[in-house]
């Protein structure tokens, strides 16, 4: 079984073979799974459909609302704002924010999402992808390839560091997703594999140290809006890489730094709902309102 162990190895394989990162990922998946190329491709098409459906659900009608009342309906607010105002950050950027928030509102409402790489970070990739679909008139094939490229980088991050908030904080979830999306956005815009790696390095560097501090332990506050940051940070980082900016610290070393920071992070800031925003007076009040009591240990 052959799996690219590092980002440097993946980039160098792409340059040597003159193939895209998405193509290498598809070939690796076919070789390792024993499934045909068509089956692998169709599997990714099903994921894309689920992502599109979540964005649509969160952006239609009144939007999606969670049972707790902590989150919901804010993708619709953004949609209305975009229609009636000249926004500060530009409409394409806000389209990404809207897609990201829509997806995570559906997730918080216990709707169907595609984990990319996690459910808590499920808005970041669709945030970028469906905005680029309109802005660059992406073909269906390009959209599928975006997901394979994201997956190629995500596998390397997951195997070398972590992607769970409980082990690495939000940097491991939204940070990883943002790096994956940045690398995939570069490929789709015609950048080189090396530029994809730089985009990932910049996007992940920007979110290093981000803690996982959900109110009441729920994937709602601040998770939904952190995906807005994951998506826009990915776009900014992709643009920086395409403009020739570099991170100076190589992508693999940034992943290593993320792992070390995750290991050093106290347990209160790793998805326990006991530190950060969750431990603010308002955060604690919300938890008491939802659960009525603090937890009991046996």
């Amino acid at each position: 079984m052959q799996i690219y162990a590092t980002i440097a190895e993946l980039v160098s394989a792409a340059e040597t073979a003159d193939l895209s990162l998405s193509e290498l990922m598809i070939q690796q998946e076919v070789a390792n799974s024993g499934n045909s190329r068509d089956e692998v491709w169709a599997g990714m098409e099903r994921n894309l459909e689920a992502m599109a459906a979540a964005v649509k659900r969160g952006s239609t009608g009144e939007g999606a609302f969670s049972k707790t009342g902590l989150t919901g309906g804010e993708a619709i607010k953004l949609k209305n704002y975009r229609a009636t105002h000249q926004s500060l950050s530009g409409d394409t950027m806000l389209a990404a924010v809207q897609n990201a928030i829509a997806t995570n509102e559906v997730n918080a409402a216990m709707g169907i999402v595609c984990a990319t790489p996690t459910a808590g970070a499920s808005g970041t990739l669709p945030g970028v992808l469906f905005m680029l679909q309109e802005r660059l008139n992406l073909t269906h094939e390009q959209m599928i390839r975006f997901l394979f490229t994201s997956g190629a980088l995500g596998m390397i991050i997951a195997n070398n560091a972590m992607i769970a908030g409980a082990t690495g904080g939000c940097q491991a979830e939204v940070g990883s997703a943002s790096g994956m999306a940045a690398a995939a956005a570069v490929e789709i815009a015609g950048g080189t594999p090396e530029q994809s790696a730089e985009a990932l390095a910049m996007a992940l560097s920007n979110l290093l140290g981000l803690v996982c501090d959900p109110i009441a332990g729920l994937v709602e506050l601040p998770c939904v809006k952190r995906n807005a940051i994951g998506a826009t940070n990915a776009l900014i980082s992709a643009d920086m890489a395409l403009a020739g900016l570099t991170n100076k610290i190589p992508a693999d070393e940034v992943v290593g730094a993320m792992k070390k920071i995750g290991e050093d992070m106290p347990q209160t800031l790793r998805e326990t709902g006991r530190g950060g925003l969750a431990a603010t007076p308002t955060g604690i009040k919300m938890k008491m309102r939802i659960f009525g009591q603090d937890r009991d240990f046996e």
């Binding site: 799974s33 692998v40 409402a109 169907i112 990319t116 499920s122 992607i163």
Partner: peptide, 19 residues
């Protein structure tokens, strides 16, 4: 631990947390 692209892009699931 992660041997397939579908471990990263996927699963399609009911929210709210993959882990």
């Amino acid at each position: 631990n992660y041997k397939s692209v579908f471990d990263i892009i996927g699963p399609v699931m009911i929210g709210p947390s993959s882990s």
